[in-house]
Simulated assay, not measured.
Amino acid sequence: MSQETPYIFDATALNFDQAVIQNSFIKPVLVDFWAEWCAPCKVLMPLLARITEEYQGELLLAKVDCDAEQDIVARFGIRSLPTVVLFKDGQPVDGFAGAQPESAIRALLEPHVQPPLPSEADPFEAAQALFNESRFAEAEASLKLLLSEDNTHAPALILYARCLAERGELDQAQSVLDAVKGDEHKAALAGAKAQLTFLRQAATLPDPAELKSRLGQDPGDDEAAYQLSIQQLSRQQYEAALEGLLKLFVRNRSFNEGAAHKTLLQVFELLGNDHPLVTTYRRRLFAALY
């Protein structure tokens, strides 16, 4: 990949120690492990580049072509793509695997890099704040007003659908999400669709009390553990669900074709990744992966 700004560069076996390890003593360096055949990598890379440019030199972005740089891949034990690792003071300090929403990346960087100046608050940001405080009716009212002025505002449509879902209007929420066009807000859209999926799945699953009873008799009942997590997600019991999913992933990461890992990532999208629970569990998942 060609150099895009002075702060973005390709890292190879020849320059890695200088460009990444040594540079990280001066500025944090985000390392993006990618490959040409990896579609999520191509979605993530422009987002990482845009965020890096916003920091105007306070953050560097190193791109590692994993097909060409097998020695680096082996050195850091990279097992899935994309993988992003943040280096600071010569050491990896945080990271994630898989394409992530912008909020997740910013939350990861916040403790380590001086943040760019925030933009002025707008009506959507106000509605988002209400939603984050579980003031769903107020958020919905604000979003209706915003959408009356611009019914193509994709983030507002997605958040409006989540408000509808919170009060059980699943079909109406689905219709709103189906009206969202373009790929720019793919991660937020995926999170909102995950919310609907959890609510619909929970309606077909055994009662939580029955699932807890099964687990009491057999703590290794992976199906009961997974189904209980889905029930907890449908009831906004996020901490219990995340803990159960992470334990299931550690115990049997291949269960139901990696369902625990996939669902963890869906929950991260659902909560927006700047949620304190997600910050904790994203790091615990990263530790379990690597």
Rank of each mutant, 00 (worst) to 15 (best):
D207L: 05
E184M: 12
G220Q: 07
F198W: 05
L189V: 13
K181Y: 15
Q227M: 06
Y238R: 08
Q195S: 02
E184N: 13
A240Y: 07
E243I: 11
A224N: 03
Q231M: 03
L177E: 09
F198E: 00
F198T: 00
S254L: 14
P219R: 06
G216M: 11
A203F: 03
S213P: 05
L215A: 04
V176T: 07
K181T: 15
E239F: 11
L245P: 03
P219H: 06
L205M: 08
R235W: 01
A202N: 00
L189R: 10
V176N: 01
V250E: 15
A240R: 11
H185G: 05
D183R: 12
D178I: 07
R251Y: 13
H185S: 10
L189P: 03
R253S: 15
A187T: 10
Q231Y: 02
Q227Y: 03
Y226L: 09
V176P: 00
G258N: 06
F249P: 09
L245F: 03
L189N: 04
L265N: 04
Q217K: 10
E210M: 07
A241K: 00
D221W: 02
S213E: 09
T204A: 06
A179M: 14
A192Q: 00
L233H: 00
L246E: 11
Q217V: 09
H185K: 10
R251W: 14
A241W: 02
Q195W: 01
I230H: 00
L233M: 07
Q201D: 08
L248S: 05
T204G: 04
L211K: 01
L233D: 00
T197F: 10
D222T: 08
A203P: 04
E239R: 13
K212A: 05
V250Y: 08
A224Y: 00
V176W: 03
L205C: 03
R200G: 04
R214A: 09
P219I: 04
Q232H: 07
Q227G: 02
L177K: 03
L189D: 03
E239H: 11
L228H: 00
E223K: 10
A203M: 07
L211G: 01
E239I: 08
S254H: 11
Q237K: 13
D218C: 10
F255W: 13
L211H: 02
